[in-house]
Structure formats: structure tokens, C-alpha cells
């Protein structure tokens, strides 16, 4: 019997046991930190548990879910989260596409730039959040001075303006996620054979025409799939709006992650918060199914 190096049958029951033993700690961690909490959240979402009234959870059936549907603050947080998610992904694409096209060249500067551009992605939220707060501060902020000169901001920071705060933080959120899209787009662009462009050039196609007929169709899938991945991440945001404005001013930046956090820590209603996270998960599952469907199509 020859042993191929890719796949082969186990040699003995001892090998089988060894294989399971080696993988079991990782499985235990996955069960303890992902599967068990998800099941527990599902159970919790059917409990009635308001810490100021009853210290222990009691069965509440669909109580949380009907409360959730009637919660107008939650509904506005939901719509705000939709705007936040779509806005973040739109900013990511708008920043990443021109950048990727520019960096898709064989020069030392382009290579160095495609490494440096990853910095917003690797820097922790807490550092970037305070960095931007500093830039936008009404007393010392350099960017605030610029916005004031442009007439966008008045004497107080744009972060204190209920009409502007969400848009500003959406931009920052997209800026933070942009490097991931650049990375993916660069990989997609590099896989397009030069011959396609050369052939089109011989046929007399101009720059714009080549971009529309060759580049766009070939990077479309990457944009959609990475956009969905980044969209899921954005949907579950918490750090940036919390660090920058705590969800304010006047709930202007309260997205679902913040509503959920406040439901546990401010309102002391963990079961209600669990119900919110179950609903968020259903929406995530819907998005993930769409993603799989799209991946299968290519």
C-alpha cells in the first residue's frame, strides 16, 4: 500500500484517539466561548429578568421579543445601525478603490505604501478613537479649526452636533476598515492578466473603457464579498461610537451594540439584552447565507 502525502487512512485506533486528543482543547475553547454562550443567550432571551425586581431569571416566554418590537428607541437604533453599516461599507469602498488602483503599480513607493496603509486596521480602536477626538476637539483640535474655517463646525465640536456626529463617526469607521478592502482589491487587481488590457488597447479602447469593461467586472465579486464581511463587522460595532460619544449626543450615535450594552449595564435587563443579541444574530445569519449564496455563484 502506497502512502500518498495528501490523504490517507488512519493506521490504527491509537492514531484516531491521538488525533481527537490533539484537537480537543481547541474545540473546548470554541464550545466555551462561542457555542455555549450562543445557546445560553437563546435561553436567556426567553426569560423575564429585570435585576431591580427579581434577582433570578424566571420564564417569560416571548415577553422580551414583544417588548422589543414595541421599543421605539430600539427601532430608531436599528435604522441608525442600517445607515451606519451601509455608510461604513460605502466609505470603505470609496476610499479603497482609488487607492488600490493607485497602489497596483510596480514601484518601491507603491509597495511601501501598501504596507503603511494597513496601519488604521491594526491600531486598536481606543487609540484611534482618542486620536480623532483630539483632532476634533473644539479647543485644541487641528481638524476642528479646518472645519470651522469651512463653516461646517461652529464653536463646539462636530461630535457634539446631533446632526453631524453620526456622519463623522461613520467616516472614521470606514477609514478604519478601508485597509482590509485595499488588501483584497490589490490581490484581485494583481490577478488580472496584463494581456487583457493589451488586447483591449490594440482594439482601441481608452483608459476609462478598459476600466469599465475589464477591471470592474473582474473585481466586482471581491467588492461584494469583502463588502459583506466588513458590513457584518460594522453591524456589530461598539468600540468607536462608545469611545467617541458614548452613543450621544441625544442618542445620535446609539447603534444596536450600544443599545445592547446599555440594556445590561445601565438598565440592568440582561434577558432583554440577550433578546436583542438573538435578533441581531438572525440578521447576521441572513447576511451570511446571502454571502454563501454569492460565493457559490462564482
Amino acid at each position: 500500500m502506497s502512502l500518498s502525502s495528501a490523504e490517507r487512512a488512519p493506521r490504527s485506533p491509537g492514531d484516531q484517539a491521538l488525533a481527537y486528543a490533539l484537537v480537543s482543547p481547541a474545540v473546548a475553547v470554541a464550545l466555551a466561548i462561542a457555542v455555549l454562550p450562543l445557546l445560553y443567550a437563546l435561553w436567556l432571551s426567553f426569560q423575564d429578568w429585570y435585576l431591580l425586581r427579581n434577582p433570578q431569571p424566571i420564564w417569560g416566554g416571548f415577553k422580551n421579543f414583544s417588548a422589543l418590537l414595541a421599543d421605539s428607541a430600539l427601532w430608531s437604533a436599528f435604522w441608525r445601525t442600517c445607515v451606519w453599516t451601509l455608510g461604513t461599507v460605502a466609505v470603505e469602498i470609496a476610499l479603497a478603490l482609488p487607492l488600490a488602483l493607485l497602489l497596483n503599480r510596480d514601484s518601491a513607493i507603491a509597495r511601501a505604501a501598501s504596507a503603511l496603509i494597513l496601519l488604521p486596521w491594526v491600531m486598536p480602536f481606543i487609540v484611534l478613537g482618542y486620536g480623532w477626538r483630539f483632532l476634533l476637539d473644539s479647543e485644541v483640535g487641528a481638524l476642528h479649526a479646518v472645519l470651522q474655517a469651512l463653516g461646517v463646525a461652529d464653536t463646539s465640536s462636530v461630535l457634539n452636533d446631533p446632526n453631524l456626529a453620526l456622519g463623522v463617526i461613520i467616516f472614521i469607521s470606514g477609514w478604519k476598515g478601508m485597509p482590509f478592502m485595499v488588501l483584497a482589491l490589490l490581490a484581485a487587481l494583481k490577478s488580472i492578466p496584463d494581456e487583457l488590457y493589451e488586447a483591449a488597447a490594440i482594439d482601441g479602447a481608452g483608459h476609462w473603457q478598459r476600466f469599465v469593461t475589464i477591471t470592474v467586472p473582474l473585481i466586482q465579486n471581491t467588492v461584494v464579498i469583502i463588502g459583506l464581511v466588513l458590513g457584518i463587522l460594522a453591524f456589530y460595532s461598539f468600540d468607536l461610537p462608545w469611545i467617541m460619544t458614548r452613543g450621544g449626543p441625544q442618542d445620535a450615535t446609539t447603534i444596536l451594540g450600544i443599545t445592547m450594552f446599555k440594556a445590561v449595564f445601565t438598565d440592568l435587563r440582561p434577558a432583554y439584552a440577550a433578546a436583542i443579541s438573538v435578533v441581531m444574530l438572525l440578521i447576521l445569519a441572513g447576511a451570511a447565507l446571502t454571502l454563501l449564496q454569492l460565493r457559490r455563484r462564482d
Binding site: I33, L36, L38, A41, Y236, V264, P270, A274, S277
Partner: peptide, 9 residues
């Protein structure tokens, strides 16, 4: 965020 509530409890 998806597992925050159960993990805290």
C-alpha cells in the same frame, strides 16, 4: 458583541 451578554452573565 454577539456573545457579550451571555459571557458577562
Amino acid at each position: 458583541v454577539a456573545v457579550l451578554v451571555p459571557i458577562v452573565v
